Amino acid sequence: MSDRLKALAEAGVSIWLDDLSRERIETGNLAELVKEKSVVGVTTNPTIFAAAIAKGERYDEQLRTLVADGKDVDEVIFGLTTEDVRNACDILAPVAEATKDDGRVSIEVEPTLANDTDATIASAKALWAAVDRPNVLIKIPATLEGLPAITAAIAEGISVNVTLIFSVERYRAVMDAYLTGLEQAKAAGKDLSSIRSVASFFVSRVDTEIDKRLEAIGTPEATALLGKAAVANAIAAYAAFEEVHASERWTALAGEGANAQRPLWASTGVKNPSYPDTLYVTDLVVADTVNTMPEKTLEAFADHGEVKGDVVTGKGAEAAAVFESLRSVGVDLDDVFEVLETEGVDKFKASWVELVDTVKGQIEAVK
């Protein structure tokens, strides 16, 4: 057991692996990470699946069966990915049974639907039914069109990982969508205690975009702010989480058995090599949160990460001061978050194209 990762878990941070493959499942690697590295959840995306499917033969038998059954490429992708997620859910089922909120595995709705509410709802329902495990989370992007889809899914009793959140303003809209869904679920007689959700707040990309703008401005005041925006943004998000979960609206739902929608720190792999490689873990330690890490970041923290206690609670004013400084040197934050969301959706769609192309190649290879 890694002492550093154990300390992180004991500080209240749920460690989720941002990766999945059939190889991890079948070799016992995922189970080992749960046992030895304090991993209590898994997130996936089309790029992760494309890499997994491209590099091994473990998918060939199922591929041949699906192709023989006349499935098209989208149906093959659906079959391969839901099989992996279902099996990962089974590996993590003991964690789900032993903990209140962990043991979850996330699978994403088709990214090309990010701006189509009805199609996103249909995709979420199909994935939920196909995986058919209570500890699966369906990833829905926090686009404007995604917000009503989040509400609709929660109202149906579907557990959701809301992804692609960049701004605190959008995060507040996500929390409202979740609470509205819970209220609708309650009105429909659903068991609120069975519904789970996390809100995936993207971290490193905020620094990447804002640092680029600060370097272009080039003043001493601007360069002094390099590497400060992403952590401040996440801290501000946590302050918003605390505010909403102190409200009468939330208290009423909690009294009916509802579970809090935990903040999840996503995109925590450090992009700038001049920053500490554990920056977005060490500087975001606070109880009742999730940090989903690529294996490289997980191993880095296991080797030299530091847990300094709660470094988030009560720092909302400091975070607000960072953003006031960013505005004062000329950073247009509204534009930053608009650019990040647009680029995020585009990257999601590109990753889906990558997955489709990969699976097409594998289909040809097994014919």
Rank of each mutant, 00 (worst) to 15 (best):
Gly344Glu: 03
Leu333Ala: 00
Ile150Asn: 01
Asp277Gly: 09
Glu295Arg: 12
Ala142Val: 03
Val40Met: 07
Gly269Tyr: 08
Gly79Lys: 12
Val359Arg: 01
Glu364Arg: 08
Leu284Cys: 13
Thr81Phe: 01
Glu243Lys: 12
Glu338Gln: 14
Tyr59Ser: 14
Val198Tyr: 03
Cys89Pro: 10
Arg64Thr: 03
Gly344Ser: 06
Lys35Leu: 09
Thr82Glu: 07
Ile217Tyr: 06
Lys139Cys: 05
Pro294Gly: 08
Ala260Glu: 13
Pro141Met: 12
Glu169Asp: 14
Gly344Met: 04
Val206Arg: 03
Leu33Phe: 09
Gly314Met: 08
Val336Thr: 13
Ala11Trp: 04
Asp346Trp: 02
Asn259Val: 02
Ile165Tyr: 02
Asn259Glu: 02
Ala177Val: 09
Glu364Leu: 06
Leu164Glu: 03
Leu80Val: 01
Phe241Val: 02
Ala155Thr: 08
Asp101Ala: 08
Asp346Lys: 15
Asp74Leu: 10
Ala68Ser: 12
Asp211Gly: 08
Glu338Val: 14
Tyr178Gly: 00
Ser325Ile: 02
Asp211Thr: 06
Thr180Pro: 01
Glu110Gln: 14
Glu215Lys: 13
Gly316Lys: 07
Leu5Glu: 13
Glu242Tyr: 02
Ala173Glu: 15
Gln362Val: 11
Lys55Asn: 15
Val322Pro: 10
Ala51Cys: 02
Val105Ser: 10
Gln184Ile: 02
Met293Gly: 09
Ala88Asp: 05
Arg213Gly: 04
Leu92Arg: 13
Gly305Pro: 11
Val331Gly: 03
Asp303Gly: 02
Asp207Glu: 11
Glu215Met: 02
Val353Lys: 14
Tyr238Gly: 00
Gly227His: 03
Leu179Val: 06
Ala50Asn: 11
Asp19Arg: 12
Arg104Lys: 15
Asp303Lys: 14
Asp60Trp: 12
Ser328Cys: 02
Glu183His: 09
Glu318Ile: 03
Glu61Ser: 15
Ala240Leu: 10
Leu33Arg: 13
Leu298Arg: 04
Arg249Phe: 05
Ser267Gln: 05
Leu284Gly: 12
Val286Lys: 12
Gly218Tyr: 08
Asp207Arg: 13
Thr223Phe: 01
Thr342Met: 07
Glu83Ala: 15
Gly70Val: 11
Asp19Phe: 07
Ala287His: 00
Ile363Glu: 11
Leu182Ile: 04
Ala152Leu: 01
Val206Glu: 03
Ser167Met: 08
Asp90Asn: 04
Asp310Ser: 07
Glu221Asn: 08
Val174Met: 06
Lys347Ser: 13
Asn135Leu: 04
